[in-house]
Simulated assay, not measured.
Amino acid sequence: MKPVEYSILFDLDGTLTDPKEGITKCVEYALNQFDIQVEHLDRLIPYIGPPLHESFVQLHGFSEEHSLRAVELYRERYREVGMFENLVIPGIPELLEQLKAAGYSLHVATSKPTVFAEQILKFYELDHYFGLIAGSNLDGSRSRKQEVIQYVLDQQHIDPRQAVMIGDRLHDIVGAKGCGMASIGVLFGYGSEEELRTAGADSIAETVVEIEQLAAHHAGAAG
C-alpha cells in the first residue's frame, strides 16, 4: 500500500520531453560564434542533460570565460525558438494522469533554468500535473542536479525516504543518491543502461509504461 505523501520527482529533458532538436541546434549556434563547425547535430547529443556550462568546458575545452559566453549565445536562440523544438515523449501525459489519480505528489527537478522549464511545460500543457517545477537559476547558481533535487525536497517538505527521482542521465541518479533518495533510470532518454546502473540507479525502466509499476514498488518499500 502506497504512503499518502509519497513524492515523485521527474527530470525534464529526455524524461518528459525529447529536446534533441532544440538543444543541439542551439549548441551549434553558440559554437558557430566561436568559428567551430559541427559535422552532424548528433555529435552534440552529449549536451542533453548535464549543466550547459560544464558541457562547454568538458566537451569542447572552453575556458570559464568562453563557456559563460557560449551559454549566453545558446540562450539567445533557445528563448526565441529552441525551447519549442521539442516533443512530449509518447505516453507521458497518460502516465502523469495515472500517477496523479493514484495520489502521488509530482514535481520536476531539472538542470534547465526554471523559467525555461516552466514555459516548456506550460506550452505542452503538462504544468498542471506538478506541484513544483524547479531548475537552475539564470545566473548559473543551483545548476548541479543534487542542488535542484534538494531544493524541491526543502520547498515541499519532502522526506527523501518517501520519494523517488526519475531521470535518464547519471546526474539524476547521482543527485538522488546525494539527497538520500531512491532513483529510477529510464532508457527512452539519452543515457545508456550502463551509465545509469554504474551511477547506482535503484531501478531501470525500459519504457514509459513500466514507470508506474516501479514507482508503486518504491512507494511500497518505503512503507
Rank of each mutant, 00 (worst) to 15 (best):
L68S: 15
E194Y: 02
G22A: 13
A201W: 05
A101L: 11
E195T: 01
V115K: 05
V71F: 05
I158Y: 00
A219C: 05
L196K: 01
F84D: 13
G135F: 06
S105Q: 14
E85W: 07
V209F: 06
E85C: 09
S63F: 01
G131P: 02
I158L: 11
G131L: 11
E210W: 04
E206D: 05
L31W: 08
G189D: 01
L59R: 12
E125W: 04
H40A: 14
L9M: 06
A163T: 13
P46A: 03
G82V: 09
R79N: 09
R169A: 09
Q58G: 02
A216I: 13
A182V: 04
I92Q: 03
A221T: 08
H66Y: 08
S192G: 00
N86D: 15
V4I: 11
F116N: 09
L106H: 07
S105K: 14
Q33A: 14
D139H: 11
H107N: 10
K100R: 13
L44E: 06
R43I: 00
K112N: 01
G189A: 07
K2I: 15
C179V: 00
D139E: 05
M165A: 01
L68G: 10
T207A: 08
L170Q: 13
G135D: 08
I211V: 12
I92W: 11
G178K: 10
L106R: 05
S192C: 06
S55G: 08
P93N: 09
E195A: 01
K25M: 12
Q162H: 12
I173E: 00
Y78V: 08
K145S: 10
G178F: 00
L99K: 08
Q162G: 03
K100P: 01
N86W: 09
E65Y: 09
F34N: 08
V108Q: 11
E85S: 07
G61K: 12
G180D: 10
S143C: 12
A102T: 08
K2M: 15
D18C: 13
C179E: 12
T15C: 12
P19R: 08
Y29C: 04
L126C: 08
V71E: 11
M83A: 02
H40Y: 01
K25R: 15
A117G: 10
L9K: 04
A109I: 07
E72F: 07
D154F: 01
L126H: 09
A221Y: 03
I149A: 03
G82E: 09
V209K: 09
L52R: 06
E206G: 15
E5L: 02
T207P: 00
K100A: 13
I36K: 15
A176V: 08
A201G: 07
G191R: 10
V152N: 05
F62Y: 13
V174D: 10
V152L: 03
M165W: 03
